[in-house]
Computed example of a mutant assay.
Amino acid sequence: MSRVTLFLAALASLSVVSAARADGDLRRGAQVYRACVACHALEPGLHLSGPSLDGFMGRVAGTAEGFVRYSSGLKDADFSWNAAALDGWLKDPAGMIPGTYMTFRGIDDPLARADLVAFLEIAGQPGGGRKVVDEGLVPAGWVRAGAPEPIGEPSPKMHVTAIRHCGDSYFITTGEGRETPYWEKNIRLKIDSAETGPPVGVPVILGAGMGGDRFSVIFRSLADLQQFVTESCEARRT
């Protein structure tokens, strides 16, 4: 019998856990769920740092379609998500699945876990995100969680047409025809291959907060990044 199976069997035998689950409060659970919004969306197929939670209840752990960042322990755990499994996971993810990539420490309070389990038993059904919004349990924005808005067609000021690296600097040319130098440590090169990313072959530059001197250049694919970034100290001719 696997470690996970033993773990779940022990949880199922504890009447205090079952009683706490039965008393779970949906509205309190929705507030506890706030801690999950940074990493998980409720929109179908929208994976962030963690997988979408749409339809995960009753599904075999580690099998969300399109999500490839599961730890080997979770992929091999061979159990389905139900109230008992979820209670154990929320209590101590690393204790239940050693080596898990989930950095969440866990929830010690059994009543808070019971509230969150009660909420997720609804929100984690197919279409559950829309249901919990319609019932006024969470704001509509929580369905997409921290997902960025689609970039769409950029303005000339945002559209990157060339990037050259020289010394400790990036020289970035935009659709306005202007080349601007940036300290290399203030530029982050990123890929967004989802529907939120830029069009193919049209990287964009976006402000990244701080003092106005940090920027992200976002590409649609690794191929785009490799195409646009060159090593050259020869100034661009205009």
Results as ranks from 00 to 15, higher is better:
R113P: 00
R113I: 09
F79V: 14
S72L: 15
G88N: 05
G95E: 09
I107N: 08
D108C: 01
N82F: 12
A77F: 01
G73S: 15
I97A: 12
F104W: 11
F119I: 05
L111W: 00
W81Y: 14
T103M: 12
D76H: 11
A77C: 06
A114D: 02
T100Q: 03
F119T: 03
A112M: 06
L74A: 14
D87V: 02
D92R: 14
L86S: 00
A77Y: 01
K91V: 13
I107F: 09
P110C: 11
N82W: 10
N82Q: 12
G99Q: 05
F104C: 11
A84I: 15
D87W: 01
D108T: 08
D78Q: 05
A94Q: 13
F79G: 04
S72Q: 15
F104P: 04
D115M: 01
I97G: 08
I107K: 08
D92T: 13
A112H: 01
D108M: 06
T100M: 06
W89C: 08
F79T: 10
S72W: 14
S80D: 11
V117I: 05
L111F: 00
W89D: 04
S80N: 07
A94F: 02
G99V: 06
P93N: 07
Y101T: 10
L74M: 14
G106A: 05
R105D: 01
L116Y: 07
P93D: 09
M96P: 02
T103V: 14
G95S: 08
S72T: 15
G88Q: 06
G73A: 15
G88R: 01
A77N: 06
K91G: 13
N82Y: 11
A94N: 07
D108A: 13
R105N: 00
L74Y: 07
R113Q: 03
Y101S: 08
T100K: 02
G106L: 08
